[in-house]
């Protein structure tokens, strides 16, 4: 356990907490990424989109060190992930939180105990009482009712499970948050609430968020920039208007398809409602 204990944790001062350079990932003969590069800015929510099977999740797994790319370099919070030999070498695990697609909660532990796992693992000196208190307010921050803390994952609905997963991802007050399709499988109201929560937490806690999604509403509502993965590379990174000005068929079809336009219209409506109405006086 002592190998996991980090020294003094200092906030990463650089501008790009995640730098991916020339990464190549392949499974057997099948090449997923080839010479893929991407930089994530500090404090932004970066949406990552791409067709099914373009390797969005593989890219996330590479960045957090679960999948070793065959070529290229990945630097997270100033530390090289690709040069790390074995898990013990990556001592920045306490500074990122990951929400997996299904929540990946430990099914034998209650929600609060799930949140306590990383705390216990990294900071055993924290007293039981403080640990319980931390778990409870993280559960509250994730938008779950207080009763949910003592429940087992199997007793929760899909949306609540995602929130519980988010609470665990936030357990150590990370600087980086990885979200893998956080709104997939949620009803539109739940998805919108989750989007708002992500945005709020990002602004309050000063997070940098790497967000994989298929949800066009999420992209329009909360993402500062969007990275598009196609043809085994990140073909473009930018705001949605910037992406639309590019003449790439996939991007055009993605954002200008019926769903894309609906999401854009919804975004425009929200903006109009937020605007003060008394302009003429």
């Amino acid at each position: 356990m002592s190998t996991h204990q980090p020294d003094q944790v200092e906030h990463y001062p650089g501008d790009y907490p995640i730098v991916v350079e020339g990464v190549r990932n392949q499974f057997g003969e099948h090449v997923i990424h080839d010479n893929l590069s991407l930089k994530v800015r500090r404090g932004e929510i970066l949406g990552v989109v791409g067709g099914s099977g373009t390797g969005k999740s593989v890219l996330m797994r590479s960045i957090i060190g679960l999948q070793v790319p065959s070529e290229g370099a990945i630097t997270v919070l100033g530390q090289s992930i690709t040069d790390a030999r074995g898990d013990a070498d990556i001592d920045i695990r306490s500074r990122w939180g990951v929400l997996f697609q299904g929540g990946a909660l430990f099914s034998t532990l209650t929600v609060a105990e799930n949140v306590e796992v990383p705390l216990l693992e990294f900071y055993p000196e924290i007293s039981d009482r403080l640990r319980h208190e931390i778990a409870l307010y993280k559960v509250m921050l994730s938008g779950l009712p207080a009763e949910a803390a003592a429940k087992f994952p199997s007793e929760l609905s899909g949306g609540m499970r995602k929130r519980a997963g988010l609470a665990r991802a936030l357990a150590l007050d990370p600087e980086l948050l990885f979200l893998d399709e956080p709104t997939a499988g949620l009803d539109p109201i739940g998805a919108a609430a989750f989007d708002r929560l992500t945005r709020e937490l990002t602004d309050t806690l000063g997070l940098t968020v790497f967000l994989i999604t298929h949800d066009l509403d999420t992209l329009h509502e909360i993402c500062d920039r969007v990275a598009v993965i196609a043809d085994r590379q990140v073909i473009a990174v930018g705001t949605i208007p910037e992406l639309l000005s590019l003449d790439h068929p996939w991007i055009q079809e993605y954002f200008n398809g019926p769903r894309g336009r609906a999401a854009e219209a919804a975004q425009a409506r929200t903006k109009a409602m937020d605007k003060p109405q008394g302009g003429k006086a």
Binding site: T110, A112, E113, E116, H132, E133, A135, L136, Y137, M140, L141, A146, E147, A149, A150, K151, F152, T204, L205, G206
Partner: peptide, 22 residues
């Protein structure tokens, strides 16, 4: 500013409650 913002975020929790089923 940051401290005030963070306190505003966490202060709604009472810090009391069960973490395991009764």
């Amino acid at each position: 500013d940051k401290a005030a913002r963070l306190i505003a975020a966490v202060h709604r929790s009472s810090g009391q409650g069960a973490v395991t089923p009764p």
